[in-house]
Computed example of a mutant assay.
Amino acid sequence: MDEPTNDLDIATLQVLEDYLDTFPGIVIVVSHDRYFLDRVVRRIFALEDTRMVQYEGGYTDYANRKAAEGTTESTGAAATSQPKNADEETTSKNWKSGQKRKLKFTYQEQKDYESIEGEMAALEEKISALEADFSKYASDFVKLNELTQEKEAAEQQLEEKMERWMYLEDLAARIERGEEN
């Protein structure tokens, strides 16, 4: 993938990141998007001077390692990286499980968060309309029974939406505080 985050909106970028998190194969990414690299890669291959050097982890791990070696990307200084020995080797699986990521909505959570209040309001209106119809059909047992079942189903949906809304509101507050996974 060559610069995959160029021209993507946030929702599409989240879908791509979520997909790559669960992709079982290998993907080679060329990108200047440091956040994206931190989010999805397990290994960095960097061209330093005329050598290809491998670093385990995301971009931040790469930058920290470079800083510890006494060179920085911005100065363009030559790399003094030595190959890691077996004691320093970190498998991609260990790195991925130990990495802390900023908490964020998944694509579906973001979509739900944006629409759930409107859905709850619509269900409340539907319940009110059904309750108003009770008096209109008070003498029609069959219709009254249908209205009661429809109202109970709408109330169940509303309860589920309210639980989801409470979860999403809590998650939004945690994201706002900058919590990590």
Rank of each mutant, 00 (worst) to 15 (best):
residue 129 A to D: 12
residue 13 L to I: 01
residue 181 N to S: 15
residue 170 D to G: 10
residue 160 E to S: 08
residue 21 D to C: 09
residue 117 E to D: 11
residue 10 I to K: 14
residue 80 T to H: 12
residue 143 K to P: 00
residue 176 E to N: 04
residue 115 S to L: 04
residue 25 G to A: 10
residue 178 G to S: 02
residue 13 L to S: 05
residue 50 T to Q: 14
residue 82 Q to V: 13
residue 151 K to W: 07
residue 124 E to V: 00
residue 103 L to E: 06
residue 47 L to D: 04
residue 71 T to M: 08
residue 83 P to C: 02
residue 104 K to G: 11
residue 156 Q to E: 11
residue 109 E to N: 06
residue 18 D to I: 00
residue 135 S to L: 00
residue 5 T to P: 11
residue 24 P to C: 05
residue 104 K to E: 15
residue 109 E to C: 00
residue 77 A to L: 14
residue 47 L to E: 12
residue 151 K to I: 02
residue 149 Q to F: 04
residue 178 G to P: 07
residue 139 S to M: 06
residue 20 L to W: 10
residue 41 V to T: 13
residue 23 F to V: 01
residue 173 A to K: 14
residue 176 E to K: 13
residue 180 E to A: 02
residue 71 T to D: 05
residue 35 Y to G: 06
residue 18 D to H: 01
residue 67 A to P: 02
residue 106 T to I: 09
residue 30 V to R: 05
residue 14 Q to E: 11
residue 93 K to C: 03
residue 154 A to W: 05
residue 29 V to H: 09
residue 161 K to V: 06
residue 175 I to L: 01
residue 133 D to V: 00
residue 108 Q to A: 15
residue 101 R to Q: 09
residue 60 T to D: 08
residue 146 E to G: 03
residue 39 R to C: 03
residue 153 A to W: 02
residue 128 S to H: 12
residue 120 M to Y: 03
residue 110 Q to K: 10
residue 50 T to C: 11
residue 64 N to D: 13
residue 45 F to M: 07
residue 45 F to K: 10
residue 27 V to R: 08
residue 1 M to L: 02
residue 18 D to A: 06
residue 132 A to Y: 02
residue 162 M to G: 03
residue 97 S to K: 11
residue 162 M to I: 14
residue 134 F to S: 02
residue 68 A to Q: 15
residue 97 S to C: 00
residue 142 V to P: 00
residue 106 T to N: 05
residue 92 S to V: 15
residue 36 F to S: 08
residue 77 A to S: 15
residue 127 I to M: 09
residue 32 H to T: 01
residue 73 E to D: 09
residue 115 S to E: 13
residue 80 T to R: 13
residue 45 F to Y: 06
residue 174 R to E: 08
residue 147 L to H: 01
residue 95 W to F: 07
residue 74 S to E: 15
residue 61 D to G: 02
residue 59 Y to S: 05
residue 1 M to I: 01
